[in-house]
Every structure is written in structure tokens, then in C-alpha cells.
């Protein structure tokens, strides 16, 4: 690992200096983000979560990550009707 070297990547639209050849997993970990919470796009392609660890970034890459947005009334129905 070239710990002393850095590169510039664009993360969610902002240029940032990161460790050279950092993996997607390490990039997320450095931001205290759990991989199972987010979708990640690298240079316009959505990555499968299983590849986060093996995918290493290169200088000039564009990375986007976004948290899952989901839910629904399913649990609420159980709560509401379960006591009737």
C-alpha cells in the first residue's frame, strides 16, 4: 500500500485528496459509512456491493454514493393492527 501517496478523485461532486488506489470500502470506512447503507456509482456505473473491497480508485475517478431510501407502512400495520 502506497500510504504516503495521494490522488484526486471527485466524491459527490467535490474534488478530494485521498490515499492512492484506495478501495471503495476504505473510502466509505474513512467516512464512517457502512457499505450496506449505500449505493455507489463509479464513473457512471453502479457497483455491486460485493465488489467494493476489490475496487480501487484511480486518479480522476468520479465517485458518487447515496444512502438507501426505503421503508413503508408494513411494520406500522403490524404494530397498529396487532393490538386490536
Amino acid at each position: 500500500m502506497n500510504k504516503g501517496y495521494t490522488m484526486i478523485v471527485t466524491v459527490n461532486g467535490k474534488k478530494e485528496e485521498v490515499q492512492d488506489r484506495i478501495s471503495v470500502t476504505d473510502l466509505l470506512t474513512s467516512r464512517k459509512i457502512r457499505a450496506e447503507m449505500v449505493s455507489v456509482e463509479l464513473n457512471g456505473t453502479i457497483l455491486h456491493r460485493d465488489t467494493f473491497g476489490a475496487t480501487r480508485l484511480s486518479d480522476g475517478d468520479k465517485v458518487e454514493f447515496i444512502y438507501y431510501m426505503g421503508g413503508g407502512s408494513e411494520g406500522l400495520q403490524c404494530t397498529v393492527y396487532g393490538v386490536l
Binding site: M37, Y67, Y68, G71, E74, G75, L76
Partner: peptide
């Protein structure tokens, strides 16, 4: 971040809470 509940009250379910990031 909006969603609808089609037959229940407008209050977050356990699933809504667990997936709120």
C-alpha cells in the same frame, strides 16, 4: 424524503425508522 402510507396513519413504521439514514 417523502413516501405514502396507503392505508395507515402518517407515522414512521419500524421499517421507516430502521432505513432512515
Amino acid at each position: 424524503i417523502y413516501h405514502s402510507h396507503v392505508a395507515t396513519q402518517a407515522y414512521p413504521s419500524a421499517k421507516d425508522v430502521s432505513l432512515a439514514f
